Simulated scan of single mutants.
Amino acid sequence: MATIYFTFEPREDLKQPLLSEFSQEDFLFDTKLDVEKLAQAEILVTYGEDLKEQHLQYADKLQWIFVASAGIEKMPAEAIAKRNIIVSNVRGIHKKPMTESILAHILALKRVLPFIYEQQQKKEWNKKARPTELNGSSALIIGPGAIGGEIGRILQAFDVHTIGCNRSGTEAPYMNETYKLDDLKQHLPKADIVISILPSTKETKHLLTREHFEKMKNSAIFMNFGRGDVVDTETLIKVLQDKLIEHAVLDVYEVEPLPSDSPLWDLDNVTLSPHFSSHSSRYVERSLDIFKPSLRKWLNGERDLENKMDILRGY
């Protein structure tokens, strides 16, 4: 019998089927990490932000951490790797809600929805805005993995030409063209929309510089839905103040929550979303759909789990 410790509690309609399906196992549920329960667990299920290095001294039995999130940058990676604890996550789970969020923002800007809402509040009949069309444009997706591929699939349905940039330059699904990340600068001038879905790693931190934005079209939309540290905040603020691009849509930031005194709040060419583009009423449901097959494997002695990660590389 394995002891499985959740540091969050799923809804009852999701929790009960889990308990029924794995009735021989010992499940512990909590709303925050408790070291006494952690000490009993072979398997930890967490969102990844509560586990600290000092907690591992109590986790003598811990063998597998299932992270119900795509990002693991707040976890004690070196300490986990030293213990040879297996880590897997829910990579790909965000692709549906995030794609819908990104598409909603793009269409809102193209079809001037913020202007429409503003005029409605003012009770004004005003046709002075200039809507544009999404079809026929080009989108450059930095990090065309599971999420980027889904974005590409939907954008292609709108007749958008998709360009992917990844580490290897190997062909990526739903990309009309794919290039190496090292060659990003030479392909930025092609794009009407630039979307970053990159994780936070040593290689991606402050990857985008002012020079990258100078290569973009003045009419470009830049969207960051990966991690906030892909671009230095002060650099991004200056780019927007200097109007090097038309607009930015940000869902992630170097410091979260975004401080109330950040100049970003006062700019009229940026849309600020509070890092919830992936949120959905189906989030935990989809997480468990990944966890349960891996748990069956684990209980059968298999260790080749879905979305198994290299904790030191960050993905």
Rank of each mutant, 00 (worst) to 15 (best):
P189K: 01
P189M: 07
K190E: 08
K190Q: 15
A191Y: 01
D192T: 12
D192W: 11
D192P: 11
D192H: 14
I193H: 03
V194N: 09
V194F: 10
I195Q: 07
I195T: 07
S196A: 14
S196F: 05
S196R: 08
S196I: 08
S196V: 04
S196Y: 08
I197T: 15
L198M: 11
L198E: 06
P199W: 04
S200W: 06
S200M: 06
S200H: 10
S200I: 03
S200F: 07
T201G: 11
K202V: 05
K202F: 04
K202M: 04
E203P: 03
K205H: 13
K205E: 15
K205A: 14
H206Y: 15
H206V: 11
L207M: 09
L207Q: 01
L208A: 12
T209Y: 06
R210S: 05
R210E: 14
E211N: 07
E211L: 01
E211M: 00
F213P: 06
F213K: 02
E214A: 13
E214N: 13
E214F: 12
E214Y: 13
K215M: 14
K215L: 11
M216F: 10
M216H: 09
K217H: 04
K217E: 03
K217I: 00
K217N: 02
S219F: 11
S219E: 14
S219G: 12
S219I: 11
